[in-house]
Design a protein around this nucleic acid. Structure first.
Length: 561
RNA sequence: CGGGGCGUGGCUCAGCCUGGUAGAGCAUCCGGUUUGGGGCCGGAAGGUCGCCGGUUCGAAUCCGGCCGCCCCGACCA
């Protein structure tokens, strides 16, 4: 029973002043969500319906691969988090109970679920297992943003798999790939499965599911047969025309020219013919130089991987002491370890800083003029190639991730089983997340138009919205009342705008909310024996005869995206 | 954590510089009118101007502190 006259759907003509992202503006305007604090949101009835429909899709598909739904608490004792080493995470909310015991608010549930496995799993006969739940996660985000896209509290579906060995884990992982592909297809999103960073804790493999949209926080590199988060993407760099070089580097005066831009301009060479040097202080080792083409940028995740340790950018005084003045540093003559990005050609002739003020060197050949360790540490850019195809880079929002944990949690938390030979073995685990709220926001972002939201059929708050234009007790009303009941008999969820409001207002609100099909019952069309059915996507209308209208509408609805 | 911005009725905002009766549009309520694109007429209600303190005869306005929120960056196991 959903009569709009009695339903909490507070639509707004204006977006909130502080909203930037499309999904943020529209979901507030459409009356789906309301803000409580920074990164804290209430879901109003229609918004909650959307989230629940998404949850149900996820549930069906995880059940289909043998997942067993359960529920674990948000409030956790600190102890297992200390054991896993995650108590130190800044994002983890920490608190004390009245007796002074340390507690945390869970930001995911590896510790808890692994603890259960440790208690319950005895034998290889108890494996494999897929356990999952939908639960609130709490994360003390440094910067919540973009409405519902990055919040401090959100519901996540997280599943955890438990297997005897790496082969078993691979099977569980593949099952999740299958389920996730179906989930995102069913939800109506445009999405990519991309290779992703396995993180500092060293997972064995990971993918992210990314929904491309303007407000996304991530960038993904795409080419035919290739999809990766730019954090880990590798591609062949675009060639650069290098100037001819001599037998030895030659110094040129570059007074005051400290940027790639300025030096390349003054010398008349492309940015890519310059080598820029990024000075870092590596934990436990000291200063090192990272050298790459002037038109490329350091990828911090790759660099950390290549260095094999944490690092920080060197301060100007540290650089001056060991190499030269900032703005004029280079690898030639620098008495520090040098990491050379592999987009730089060993035999090429490049321009670098001369390690003294107001001077650069040209004709510098890596290998001849300085020794180096090769590494892939740059970020790919659009136009680089993979298998001969140029990549493109798109912004996207992460809507799901799958991760091979291995024994990362089972070892510290003591989750082991006895194998066929009676030997104790650690359980091999995987973890797999999906954010229903992000699916909703991504759908809004991907399909919104000037008029508002345009939900995919599978996750819309209602399947059909009826707009009746007649006064109370009119013929239009009684027809619409009957249609409302008959559509429900067809198995459709229906929002009936029975308010005593003008047509403009009703149409505007219906388009803002974005149910996939809008039925308009007005005197004019009804006199002609028809009602109007307008698909929200593209706003294309068809007329439906009033005879057997409900069945015809249900059929029309099934054809919608 | 660094930088920038904002806080005035339910929403969007003006007023602050230059101190002196708190405003507009939309929304709401009442009456009427209208009914295929946020229509029109009349009437009404609604605000400790984020909080605390200071300056002043007098503070939304000036000064100090605090709180909250947004954006960019850093961070994001």
């Amino acid at each position: 029973m959903t009569l709009l006259s009695g339903y909490l759907l507070p639509t707004e003509r204006e977006p909130p002043a502080d909203a930037e992202a499309i999904s943020h503006k529209l979901m507030v305007r459409a009356g789906l969500i309301r803000q409580v604090g920074a990164g804290l949101w209430s879901w109003l009835p229609a918004g909650w319906r959307v989230q629940q429909r998404i949850v149900q899709i996820v549930r069906e598909e995880i059940d289909a691969i043998g997942g067993q739904e359960m529920l674990m608490p948000v409030l956790n004792p600190a102890e297992p988090w200390r054991r896993s080493g995650r108590y130190a995470i800044d994002e983890l909310f920490k608190l004390k109970d009245r007796r002074g015991a340390d507690m945390v608010l869970a930001l995911s549930h590896e510790e808890i679920v692994t603890g259960h496995a440790a208690q319950v799993v005895r034998s290889y006969r108890d494996l494999p297992l897929i356990l999952y739940h939908f639960q609130t996660k709490e994360r003390d985000e440094p910067r919540p943003r973009a409405g519902i896209l990055r919040t401090r509290e959100f519901i996540m579906k997280d599943s955890y798999t438990f297997d005897r060995d790496a082969e078993g884990l691979a099977v569980a992982y593949d099952k999740h790939v299958t389920a996730y592909d179906k989930i995102f297809d069913r939800s109506g999103l445009r999405w990519y499965r991309v290779e992703s960073d396995v993180g500092m804790m060293g997972g064995l493999g990971a993918h992210e599911y990314m929904a491309p949209c303007a407000s996304g926080e991530n960038e993904i590199a795409l080419a035919p047969g290739y999809a990766a988060n730019v954090e880990v993407a590798c591609a062949r760099a675009q060639p650069v025309a290098l100037p001819p070089g001599g037998d030895a580097p030659e110094e040129v005066a570059t007074p005051g020219l400290t940027t790639v831009d300025a030096v390349a301009g003054a010398l008349g060479v492309p940015f890519g013919a310059l080598l820029k040097s990024y000075a870092v202080v590596v934990e436990g080792r000291g200063l090192e130089l990272v050298v790459m083409r002037g038109d490329h940028r350091v990828n911090e995740i790759k660099l950390r991987g290549a260095l094999g340790a944490d690092y920080r950018q060197a301060r100007p005084d540290e650089v001056l002491e060991l190499v030269g003045p900032v703005g004029f540093i280079g690898p030639v003559g620098a008495d520090v370890p040098i990491l050379l990005d592999d987009a730089v050609l060993p035999g090429g002739s490049y321009v670098t800083g001369a390690n003294r003020p107001d001077a650069h060197l040209r004709g510098v050949e890596p290998g001849r003029d300085f020794a180096f360790v090769p590494a892939a540490v740059r970020s790919v850019v659009a136009g680089d190639t993979v298998g001969g195809h140029a990549i493109r880079v798109e912004r996207a929002i992460e809507v799901g991730n799958i991760f091979k944990l291995g024994t990362r949690y089972s070892e510290p938390l003591g989750a082991a089983y006895l194998d066929e030979h009676g030997r104790s073995q650690p359980i091999w685990m995987g973890s797999y997340g999906i954010g229903p709220a992000r699916i909703a926001a991504a759908a809004v972002e991907q399909y919104a138009d000037e008029q508002g939201i345009s939900w995919p059929r599978a996750i819309a708050p209602f399947d059909v919205e009826i707009v009746v234009l007649g006064r109370e007790a009119s013929e239009e009303r009684s027809f619409a009342d009957r249609l409302y009941r008959e559509l429900q008999d067809q198995g459709l969820s229906v929002l009936y705008d029975d308010r005593d409001a003008g047509p403009g207002e009703k149409f505007a609100d219906a388009e803002l909310l974005g149910c996939p099909l809008r039925l308009t019952v007005g005197k004019r069309s009804l006199a002609g024996g028809e009602i109007e059915a307008q698909a929200r996507r593209g706003r294309v209308s068809t007329m439906v005869p009033v005879e057997r209208a409900a069945a015809a509408v249900a059929e029309r609805w099934r054809e919608l995206p």
